[in-house]
Design a protein around this nucleic acid. Sequence first.
DNA 1: ATTACCAACTGGTCTGACCAGTTTTTAAAT
DNA 2: ATTTAAAAACTGGTCAGACCAGTTGGTAAT
Lengths: 252, 252
Amino acid sequence: MGRSQEISYRLEQLILDGGLAPDQKIPSERQLADRLGVSRAIIREALHELQGRGVIDTFHGKGSFVASIVPATRDLDDNGPLMHLFAGHPRTMYDLLEVREQLEGQAAFLAAQRATDIDRHRLTKAFRMLEETDPLSNAKPDHGFHQAIVEASHNPILVHMLKGLKNMMLLSVQASVANLNPREAMRHSIMKQHRRIYQAILAGKPASARKAAIDHVRFVADSMRDLESQGAEVIRMPIDTEHTNSGATPSV
Amino acid sequence: MGRSQEISYRLEQLILDGGLAPDQKIPSERQLADRLGVSRAIIREALHELQGRGVIDTFHGKGSFVASIVPATRDLDDNGPLMHLFAGHPRTMYDLLEVREQLEGQAAFLAAQRATDIDRHRLTKAFRMLEETDPLSNAKPDHGFHQAIVEASHNPILVHMLKGLKNMMLLSVQASVANLNPREAMRHSIMKQHRRIYQAILAGKPASARKAAIDHVRFVADSMRDLESQGAEVIRMPIDTEHTNSGATPSV
DNA sequence: ATTACCAACTGGTCTGACCAGTTTTTAAAT
DNA sequence: ATTTAAAAACTGGTCAGACCAGTTGGTAAT
């Protein structure tokens, strides 16, 4: 293994072992080179590797920073290859919904079991926002609500999985919201479904919560399938082909 | 965005767009630098980034090669950060099993629905191997069986999710196999559960397949919980911490 | 106090040299 | 002629120092 690899590994260790927290600034390349006794080129190569792994973000003139998101979460991120590979296919949305059905069902189940007072408070806040906001304008409240549930599940792996799907999910939710919400009846149904999930979790009824969550996702999928088969104008998941932005990701 | 990033992206495009197949050799750094009109340093940085993303592998004196695994498959590999973050906590195994329950249940469900002849053939092969191999020696047949199921689900996102959990799962499966299999009764139960899953999928019974898969994972989790509560010797998920810190390197 | 500017950071790129493995070619020894 | 060993021509790995290009903060002129 080359020196560069070793350096990359040592830096990653440093970051992960709590020495450096997210968003924290990493010493400058010249400093690192000096301190570690290697040339700046090596440092740059190591940093690029970490960059590839999503551990750090680098900005010209500013410096390098520990990525705000958990490193391994980067998988399906903005300009990740997967996104480009998948996002184009309409089937992807349904594939995603299939996975969401399970993951969110489980999340709701666990949330009903394990939610603390804080979780319940956050969930309530998210739910209120969901009720008050115009659903057409943006999908964030919707996604925020679902995320609050996941976090209340207290299963780090579950959280991680769904964080990895964050961007795809945003698009997915966006697509479904845009398609489904305008139809008054559907909008109403979805509202009711959200409330069912919310109340089941608050009431501490795991089985009901799971069923409500699964029904919800399934309803969305089925509805869109129906719409599509009727030849309606279906707004698909937008295909992102921009590689320019690095920091302007939606904050959810 | 810097030149290096652009180069990295262009190279990845080349690879993904079928220009370069797995295990194929990439032009030498000097050639690339020449052809793309940039310095060798830039090329090296770009290659390191791709290396970090698992798209290529590089060998001193030989060259760089497209990674045998498809790029999109890369993620929580061997010593991925998440591993180190989580693997230490025993609860992680149960968290993982909770997620597996859902994901594998869904995979079995879809596999029963969608499996092609090829899938069925692969599945059969994996199942035979599972039956014939001594389960104590290694957990790979077990994991291979589960993986065959997932691939038969024909849901790329599901495949991706579970591939990402592969290594953790290997440890998880390893732990459960090591703990559960020696007890004859349990070993027998698990065998039977595997057969149930297998047969349900082959028979094209989605609901049964899901139930069988969920029951299986749940059985494993419950059994281990029981064992643990009885104070039995439980082999946990091994925590790997070989850092091979070479000698007196100055700490940062 | 505000503005403009400049110096001192930061990362980004280039060059050309040299070290260290690997492969191929060449030339010597049999 | 075949085998074998040395050497040349690859490959990536590292280093040095220079210069370009954004960002930031302080200072001097207004």
